[in-house]
């Protein structure tokens, strides 16, 4: 029996050690989460006003502007935002699940949406999807499934700055402008609260009013009044409509991408915090169970010893 108590003791020790690690990770991610959430919330206001402006501009129905042009979709670029590290619960799992689902439903993704109802431009057959991976986990996913991976960005810091995102958005804009891709979507995790995160798919390019309104609806502003539709003709454009569109559209793509990355980062840290919290709780429970088993084994050993001694004494008499 002595052996079994020793084995249980070692297990208790190892579980306790693991608990120390998960506890420390929980604290670290709680601190990181606070920062990431602050950054995401601060940028929301900016993204909101910028998107509202974009929403107004998207009302322009002029195919001369490449950013607004709805081409028949042959190739899609999917920006998948995941984390660099694991141990964050279902965070990467749900992103990857959504990505796989999209790959099985390519035709739907290729469809253009307009404000009044469904598609106007038929999508082509055999749509192709390429992946631009942000974060190591999405890159691993693309490699495992033999997807066409066109770009890898796995060196973003915990709290990415606007400049860090520029290289991604520049690539996206350039690839769209040279008509390599007819549509760019971004897959990210929207941060609702530290317990609730939701995977979202948003269209970055071409700029489309429907998607912007959806994105706006997700951002809880102080006054969530619907954005009124102003006739775009009322506006004065200084220095000119063309310059405005050329300047504003790429910037707004940057902002949306930046926002998506910040939201994902906030979600990642809170997912990790929750995962580590439940791991610590599970460890606590396990230590309790093991201690009970240990005490029982110890008691059994003592009882057996007494039985042996007393029976030995009885044999002597």
């Amino acid at each position: 029996m002595a052996l079994s108590t020793k084995a249980i003791k070692t297990r208790i020790k190892s579980v306790k050690n693991t608990k120390k690690i998960t506890k420390a990770m929980e604290m670290v991610s709680a601190a990181k989460m606070r920062k990431a959430v602050d950054a995401a919330l601060n940028t929301r206001m900016y993204a909101r006003f910028a998107s509202e402006l974009l929403d107004h501009l998207a009302g322009i129905d002029d195919p001369n502007y490449a950013f607004l042009e709805k081409r028949p979709v042959q190739k899609i670029l999917m920006v998948v935002i995941s984390s660099n590290r694991g141990l964050c619960g279902g965070f990467n799992g749900s992103i990857i699940k959504k990505a796989s689902a999209l790959f099985h439903d390519k035709e739907n993704l290729a469809r253009h949406r307009v404000v009044e109802g469904e598609e106007t431009i038929p999508s082509m057959d055999n749509v192709e999807i390429d992946v631009l991976g942000v974060g190591k986990k999405s890159v691993a996913f693309a490699k495992r499934h033999d997807l066409n991976l066109v770009g890898v960005y796995d060196e973003l810091s915990e709290t990415p700055s606007f400049e860090d995102v520029l290289s991604i958005s520049n690539t996206v804009n350039a690839r769209y402008m040279d008509k390599t891709y007819d549509k760019v979507v971004v897959l990210y995790t929207h941060f609702q609260s530290s317990l609730v995160q939701e995977v979202k798919v948003r269209q970055l390019l071409p700029v489309c009013a429907v998607d912007i309104e959806k994105m706006l609806a997700d951002l809880p502003g102080e006054e969530s009044e619907p954005v009124e539709v102003f006739p775009i003709e009322q506006y004065i454009f200084e220095p000119g409509l063309e310059q405005i569109i050329e300047y504003v559209m790429p910037r707004l793509v940057e902002i949306q991408l930046y926002q998506a990355i910040l939201e994902s980062s906030a979600s990642e840290h809170s997912a990790r915090m929750v995962a580590m919290k439940s791991a610590s709780e599970a460890a606590d429970e396990m230590v309790g169970d093991l201690t009970l088993a240990f005490n029982k084994a110890r008691q059994a050993a003592i009882t057996q010893e007494i039985a042996e001694i007393s029976s030995g004494a009885a044999a002597l008499e």
């Binding site: 506006y235 004065i236 454009f237 200084e238 220095p239 310059q243 405005i244």
Partner: peptide, 9 residues
């Protein structure tokens, strides 16, 4: 106050 609607860089 009450400027015409306008967008500029």
């Amino acid at each position: 106050e009450a400027h015409a609607p306008m967008v500029s860089i």
